[in-house]
Amino acid sequence: MNSYNVDCIKMTQNELRKKLKEKTVGIAGCGGLGSNAAIALSRSGVGSFVIVDFDRVEESNLNRQYYFREQIGKKKVEALSINIFKIDRSINIEAHAIKMKPHDVKTLFGKCDIILEAFDVADAKMMLVESVMEQLPQIPIIVGNGMAGIGGFELLKIIKWAENVYVCGDGISEVSENLHPLAPRVAIVANMQANLALELLLK
């Protein structure tokens, strides 16, 4: 496992947006990580998304996920599409309200330039990492791993774990009854994922 660092990428705003407009980002899970990362990447100029989540927006999600009170009860992929369109109506979104299985991974994400793993449950994270390593070894996947609680900013890091697998987070803070996922730390990790996605897309 190696820490992953690259220099800041410098280019003009026009050049940046032109390049990102042609890119497609796959987002697996539209909760705290996925919704916040999608918004950051939309604002940055990414042209297309494939978003996947079977869940609906709940009141308890509003402490960290990029949704609003009036969206409670809506499918997350629909609510997120609406929120992305509020930023940029020209973005292409392919939305799938399904529970992803290993055999869906290639079909859903095969055309993506990069994949963000943003599931909340570790079983689903493991399934996706194994499936992408096996089925789509040419596509980078950025995993969110360990972001519950408050403080501990200096523990958050990026690791390159395999040729196409990057891991963002502290690797230790698992959600539990006494350790909740809250907006600041979840959004920091979501934005670490988004920032790394931009670096890899523009490399």
């Binding site: 496992m1 705290g32 994270k125 698992e174």
Partner: peptide, 10 residues
């Protein structure tokens, strides 16, 4: 051998 431990949260 490399082992990545995945934990819940997101």
């Amino acid at each position: 051998v490399e082992v990545l431990h995945l934990i819940s949260g997101g």
